[in-house]
Design a binder for these strands. Structure first.
Length: 287
DNA sequence: CATTACCTGCAA
DNA sequence: TTGCAGGTAATG
């Protein structure tokens, strides 16, 4: 489910609810494999009694900075959902972690597919996690020429490269497709073949797509909710994702769905020409 | 680079 | 019943 905009909207909606709250108890943990580090016993013991200082995000990780130098890192993977409720727990068999707070509210982690993971990290652990990931696309430090430079060093195709978290942090299947469509670039283009103008277009497209997604509350296809339990609306503005057979909003051609890097990939065959792509079946005769 | 695994629910 | 899903790590 969650890519950068969803994780960001969750972080932003959780922050005012749980900042400065004390974690008084771990009321439920029924899927111990979600705890990657430390061992479950130390995890529970260290977590109880910690105060939440602030809520942030790095790549697709939610980061809860706690007191005593600890950070709770949580990755929602495909179906994870994180919400604060004050009334009686709507905890069902898919709710795997419940943290009781000192104001009577509870933080619920629900994850039907059980792919989500948590870690309790010290400062060095956070630094190590941070070092695994590429630049944050919405960071002011990240400029068009940074992206152009990184693209020039890689001969891979654009789609798998943009999904690579060490290349650029936070993009997933939806927002890669949407960004490539906005930039008018084919997902199979080899990264190093982009002109400076195309690289700049891609840079702008990624930032625009992500900013608009955050502004519209993230995409709720199935599981995603923000920290208040509310759905997002970005899916109402998709140009190509999930729109196979429908008209391209820019040129009216029919949106196609192909498989790239084992992922369903949506594109406009007219706006995103395959010229210059080693597709094996050239769409155009060369002249 | 491709395939498989990790899980469950849902639509075709 | 089969295949597919917003992610990622571990294999050939």
């Amino acid at each position: 489910m969650p890519e950068l905009p969803e994780v960001e909207t969750i972080a932003q909606s959780l922050a005012p609810q749980i900042a400065q709250r004390l974690i008084v108890a771990v009321e439920k943990l029924d899927w111990e494999r979600m705890v990657e580090t430390p061992d479950v016993r130390a995890f529970l013991q260290t977590l109880e009694g910690r105060r939440v200082a602030r809520v942030g995000r790095r790549a697709k990780w939610l980061l809860f900075a706690l007191d005593a130098g600890w950070t709770l890192a949580l990755h929602l993977r495909m179906s994870g959902r994180l919400c604060v409720y004050d009334a009686a727990p709507p905890a069902d068999q898919h709710t795997h972690l419940v943290l009781a707070l000192d104001n009577g509210q509870r933080l619920f982690f629900r994850d039907p597919r059980k792919f989500g993971r948590v870690r309790l990290l010290d400062g060095a652990g956070v630094a190590a996690l941070d070092a695994q990931y590429g630049p944050e696309p919405l960071d002011d430090q990240f400029q068009a020429h940074d992206l152009a430079q990184r693209l020039a060093r890689r001969r891979t195709r654009l789609k798998p490269l943009l999904l690579e978290q060490a290349f650029i942090a936070g993009l997933g299947n939806i927002y890669v497709d949407e960004s490539l469509w906005l930039a008018r670039l084919h997902p199979l283009r080899a990264a190093h073949t982009l002109t400076p103008e195309e690289a700049t277009r891609l840079y702008q497209a990624i930032r625009t797509v992500l900013q608009q997604a955050i502004a519209s509350g993230g995409s709720t296809l199935r599981d995603y909710r923000n920290g208040y339990g509310d759905v997002g609306h970005t899916q109402e503005y998709f140009s190509v994702y999930g729109r196979k057979g429908k008209p391209c909003p820019r040129c009216g051609a029919t949106v196609a769905r192909v498989v790239v890097a084992q992922r369903g990939t949506h594109l406009c065959p007219i706006c995103q020409p395959s010229e210059g792509c080693a597709t094996g079946a050239p769409a155009l005769v060369d002249n």
